[in-house]
């Protein structure tokens, strides 16, 4: 073992709590990958909760730790945790998959949602955020996720990528956007209810 003989540099209590929450939230994102609901609009496109996890990370953990939770999720998946959709894993999802744009957008979208809801990088009481603010933040998050997802899809599948953005949007994003409204409605319900014990 590579023993460290320097004095122990303890992590502060607040940071420990944040690391634990970010890690648990990342694991919850992974568990969400296994949950799918039947889609009332298009039977062939099941609804998964990953994007809802991104929204809630930004809202509940704030822009900084929400984004860190998403990075932990991506890195864990890259080195082998079965957390990507359908229980897949591997760094291929981040460097070569047609869905890599969606994955890379998660930390950015979580940070953006958190910045809007908390009005800055600090953590405020998210339950006091107004419904229009919450919805606006999540619409912005959705836009970021699908914009980067479309560009990523075009970059992987088409050459030159910028000439095929329309095709990429139709294949990679269009079927999934309508059900985002369902997830936004669910997220508002979750945040506004008193059911979440720890704030």
């Amino acid at each position: 073992m590579a023993t460290n003989t320097e004095s122990v540099d303890l992590v502060g209590d607040e940071t420990v709590a944040n690391i634990a929450r970010a890690a648990l939230f990342a694991a919850l994102m992974g568990a969400f990958a296994y949950v799918s609901f039947p889609n009332p609009l298009a039977a062939g496109v099941p609804i998964t909760l990953q994007v809802l996890g991104v929204f809630l990370a930004g809202i509940m953990l704030g822009p900084v730790w929400g984004a860190i939770a998403m990075v932990l999720y991506l890195v864990a998946g890259a080195i082998g945790a079965p957390v990507f959709s359908g229980g897949a894993a591997g760094i291929g999802h981040l460097i070569a998959s047609p869905t890599l744009g969606f994955l890379w957008s998660y930390p950015i979208a979580a940070a953006a949602v958190g910045l809007v809801v908390h009005r800055g990088v600090g953590l405020t009481e998210y339950k006091s955020a107004s419904t229009p603010t919450l919805v606006g933040a999540m619409v912005l998050g959705t836009a970021i996720i699908y914009a980067l997802g479309t560009v990523g899809f075009a970059a992987i599948q088409y050459d030159p990528w910028y000439a095929s953005l329309g095709q990429a949007f139709v294949v990679s994003s269009l079927p999934f956007i309508p059900v985002e409204a369902v997830k936004i409605a669910a997220a508002v319900g979750i945040v506004k209810s008193d059911a979440i014990a720890a704030a």
């Binding site: 694991a27 860190i68 932990l72 864990a76 957390v83």
Partner: peptide
């Protein structure tokens, strides 16, 4: 640390 916790709790 975070990544190993994800593996543990998933």
């Amino acid at each position: 640390v975070g990544v190993s916790l994800v593996f543990r709790f998933l």
